[in-house]
Design a protein around this nucleic acid. Structure first.
Lengths: 226, 226
DNA sequence: AAAATAATGTGATGTATATCACATTATTCC
DNA sequence: GGAATAATGTGATATACATCACATTATTTT
């Protein structure tokens, strides 16, 4: 791998904009690019965590084993860092990451990353800011997940896929009904039923995994009110 | 306020151990100590966030307005930082902090704090580590909250109060049944019923707010299994 | 292309827990 | 210390959703 490639890739990250050329080179030298197919595991819960991952391209789900079922914590879309909390926060991963679309990821050695944090305060300041924003998002996601009924949670995730992930009112679901159930914490059957309810109400149009949002305003209301 | 006091106080924080004498002095100079009584608000959701708070003494609840009820995100026990994510992550607070016991807190000016992050990489590294650990904890809390039934969540919080907060099998609940409901996301009535169920099963002993844990092993099993 | 496997839809039934209603007991306040 | 207010306990009823059961349809695999 060449330094040139890495610096181009990492320049998408706000934090890495603070890195100097030699620092980027240093990162590039301990950085390995890996391609994943749909379904491939990028890192696994309980395995030793030794890399920060920079998602160059693709879409990933973060999974954690709950007391009753695996929970999809959130989806992460490139470009972004992956596994910052789980790699910096403990020796062992507290969740898994699995590609749900063809994905390219850079594995950055944790010691190199830590070193950059220590020698470049602007870089580390941006990382702090990003961690803080993530945590705030996570608080909101969590409260919504607990307090909203499933209809509202489902609406929320459909909107999220439409506006954040695919930036289109029509898209192909990257998840099975079972995975959607793990995301909104319900059963597969309920997902089926509620999707066809939304369809009957002409709020969305569903054909297998193909989804089109017909009434975004109403979907937003459902997402907010529960 | 004197520098001497502040450095003593902040030395309890792992991150602040990396601060030099002049840096501690700098922090001390833009640091105000405030005493709160039970029920006092320390900072409020949606207000402009301008301070990092170091909890010297006491116990605090973090509140966020949910779509259906206020949610208690978590309890925070001194000594710890308060409002790191909400102050660094946005201009405005995403949650409130309210004292639930007599509490002493130091308000550190955000600009001073940011400056220290920029000039002292070891300090900022520790803050990153703490943020990461918090986020991991939060993931686990969230999954437990969604997947466990209320009996399990209640057990979990009773254990937490016993082992983390009061470090005793007997303690006085710092929350009303209503607040416990906001914590485990249920109704006041259900909290009443489940507490007396736990009592009938001889797992805990309840007299008003006074609680004694009689069968910790079983309580842990309930907390884990749901 | 056939066989095997995985994903999905849909009815019937059960249950945890919300909600309403009201009685009882603590706390706070003047 | 009595009045007002807040906190708590407990029954009856309603409901969102889980779970089970099975039919149907996609998707892989060979």
């Amino acid at each position: 791998m060449e330094n040139k490639n890495c610096s181009l890739c990492l320049f998408k990250s706000k934090a890495a904009k603070n890195l100097s050329d030699p620092e980027l080179k240093q990162m590039g030298n301990s950085c390995a690019e890996v391609v994943f197919r749909k379904g491939d595991t990028i890192f696994k819960e309980n395995a030793l965590s030794s890399n920060i991952i920079y998602l160059q391209k693709g879409l990933v789900k973060l999974l954690i084993e709950g007391p009753h079922q695996t929970q999809i914590l959130r989806l992460k879309k490139a470009p972004c860092y992956l596994g910052l909390p789980t790699t910096m926060g403990d020796k062992v991963n507290h969740y898994s990451a699995v590609a749900i679309e063809p994905t390219t990821a850079c594995f950055i050695d944790i010691n190199t990353f830590k070193n950059l944090l220590k020698i470049n305060p602007d870089f580390s300041f941006e990382i702090i800011t990003e961690l803080c924003r993530n945590e705030l998002e996570q608080f909101h996601r969590c409260v919504k997940l607990i307090q909203n009924q499933i209809y509202g949670r489902l609406a929320n995730h459909l909107l999220n896929l439409s506006t954040e992930v695919y930036e289109s009112t029509e898209f192909k679901l990257p998840l099975t009904r079972n995975e959607i159930a793990d995301l909104v914490c319900t059963s597969r059957e309920t997902v089926s039923r509620l999707l066809s309810d939304l369809s009957k109400e002409k709020i969305i149009q569903v054909d297998g995994k193909q989804v089109r949002i017909l009434n975004q305003a109403l979907l937003e209301k459902i997402s907010d009110k529960g």
